[in-house]
Design a protein around this nucleic acid. Structure first.
Lengths: 343, 343
DNA sequence: AACATCAACTTAAACGTTTAACCCAACCAA
DNA sequence: TTGGTTGGGTTAAACGTTTAAGTTGATGTT
């Protein structure tokens, strides 16, 4: 019966060699004769030593092969959101190829301090709600990369949200339309509501505000001003918030005939609500989404939306982090024209 | 400019006390006068020491607050599958409440050895494809719990799959029905196919085989034998596999009028295919699912299925692990009767 | 006054590795 | 023969903590 786990020291003693030699057998084959190495490995196998203790390695080497994925929201929300989970997919695939492990870190936690010492780097997905966290990320000295938001001097992955929003809006909006926007995280409210003149949050670093700018520019080109009363705020891209916003927008009068949604989930919920009410899409109501999730493709009519590859983002983020990339990258997007607008 | 990160030793020196005192200030308030402690903490804040290095703590204390979630499949698949991602949700919520971190571990990796030394425990979700992994889990000495499968002497969380399958099948099957089954991971094949007489894999520990037993028992009670040629194998609960299986089953002749599906994803895909072909559900075709995912509820007609709470499973698993529970738990399930069968 | 108790610290030995620096025999060149 | 390399090792000092055990001076008890 094994009393306690074998250590490298025990093994060295048993085999009559130094600890360095055992260590080298596992980590630096070139420091040993081939014969000795194989013998040592075989003996280790035999006596049940499965290799150097990783905790000790982390301390000594200062590297753990663990990458922390810092999510803007709770893990719970992130794994169920199609966009975020697809991103995670990209990240995890790439990390795994490189033999790295993935630590999921909820952005609604207070501090990254309790992992910063042992992870090899950070991938930060979406602007943390909690500003302190963003500061900590900027301040700590491990490699980090942000996705879908920016921090000075930290490399990042983004798409050109302003132009993407502009293009999808431009495709949708006709002269004399009444345009509404179902936005995401525009103001500091935990509920769905029109923004009126609530102060916008996070205006500079927020992708939502870039998208807003794009929408507004496209509208302006058609001579349309979008009043804040036609702009909704949703705290999350969640079906139930979306449902409520959809209801409000469809009930309002005059009813908008073009609704620009900042996520496909929102757009799809609006689409379903509208169809259920017998509204003709796109003739009475045009809808655009954002993201290009699978479900948008399965919907009838097909959703007009901006496709961005979350998998590509995840892969790019992981690769850039591991490669020590320091530049900020802008990834491409794709306009997908469906039948929720008129062409 | 900071040259290198401060260590506890540095701080001790600067403040003119022993390292033990600094350590105690952070970890064991009772070992210090309140005054001294506050002074130390304040000084640490001032000189930029953010607390003991976690890597060193892990080594010294032998605990990291990291729990590994070992997934049966790739992380990529797991985060997109509604059932698995909901499970992760339950796990992560509970872990976070207890200040634990979540390391996602892909079961298609070879070995848990590279994390076993520093994680505090394992939650294993679904039987790993790779038998070696299961053995390692059983062999290592850290706390572990399995979900949706079993290993001798390891605590686990399961539902009574046999009875769940029996009940949903019983509700669906009428006399003289032609019954088909769309199963999951029944044989060792990477493609969708009928099982005919391929050898079943993993018969004892597999929940799929428990479900199969339940289906067969219910059928038998109506005097129906389900021949292996009416049983399909899908390698994953994935839409594209499901689509193909749906096509095959709907094209086969005679066409079954009752199809028991081992997941809702499969059932929904079958439902869509059937409706698209103009088949009357449930009069020409009865369908049952398994899991009770949200989407099943949004479908029309509503899917008849077995609801099991993946969130509850996740929570139960995390709680049991953290509490050092050693027993195997059987969680309840719920029959949900929708309009995809006749009542 | 002698002794026990206690709070508040300090000392120093772990925790299990990695790795720079050193050592030595064997081989080789001149 | 001498001296320089080199392959194959060993030694011992880190890595940054925690914590059992020990020290001290102050307080309390008899």
């Amino acid at each position: 019966m094994k009393k306690t786990k074998l250590t490298l020291k025990d093994v060295a003693q048993q085999l009559g060699v130094s600890t360095a030699t055992i260590s080298n057998a596992f980590n630096r084959p070139d420091q040993l004769s081939k014969g000795k190495r194989e013998e040592i490995l075989a003996q280790c196998e035999r006596i049940g030593y499965s290799g150097p203790n990783k905790a000790a390695q982390i301390l000594r080497k200062g590297t753990s092969n663990i990458v922390a994925l810092v999510l803007a929201d709770s893990i719970a929300y992130m794994v169920s959101d199609p966009v975020a989970s697809t991103f995670i997919k990209g990240v995890s695939t790439t990390l795994q190829q490189q033999g790295k492990h993935l630590l999921l870190y909820a952005g609604d936690s207070n501090s990254i301090l309790d992992v910063v010492d042992f992870v090899d780097g950070f991938i930060c997905y979406g602007a943390p709600r909690n500003y302190k966290l963003a500061q900590e990320i900027a301040a700590q000295s491990k490699p980090a990369i942000t996705v879908d938001f920016d921090i000075d001097d930290v490399p990042s992955i983004n798409i050109d949200n302003e132009n993407a929003a502009y293009e999808v809006a431009k495709a949708a909006i006709d002269e004399n339309d009444i345009v509404a926007i179902l936005g995401l995280r525009l103001i500091d409210s935990p509920t769905t509501c029109r923004i009126y003149d609530s102060p916008l949050i996070d205006v500079n670093s927020s992708i939502s505000h870039r998208r807003l700018d794009g929408y507004v520019r496209a509208a302006k080109e058609q001579g349309i001003e979008i009043n804040n009363e036609w702009i909704w705020h949703l705290p999350e891209s969640d079906r139930s918030y979306a449902r409520q916003a959809a209801k409000e927008v469809l009930m309002s009068s005059p009813r908008p005939n073009t609704v620009l949604c900042m996520s496909d989930i929102i757009a799809l919920e609006l689409l379903h609500s509208a169809l259920a009410m017998g509204i003709d899409v796109p003739n009475e109501l045009k809808i655009t989404g954002f993201d290009g999730i699978e479900e948008a493709d399965r919907a009838r009519p097909h959703l007009t939306t901006v496709c961005q590859s979350s998998v590509a983002k995840g892969e790019a983020a992981a690769k850039a982090l591991l490669a020590g990339e320091v530049r900020k990258q802008i990834l491409p997007f794709d306009l997908r024209l469906g039948e929720t607008i008129r062409h």
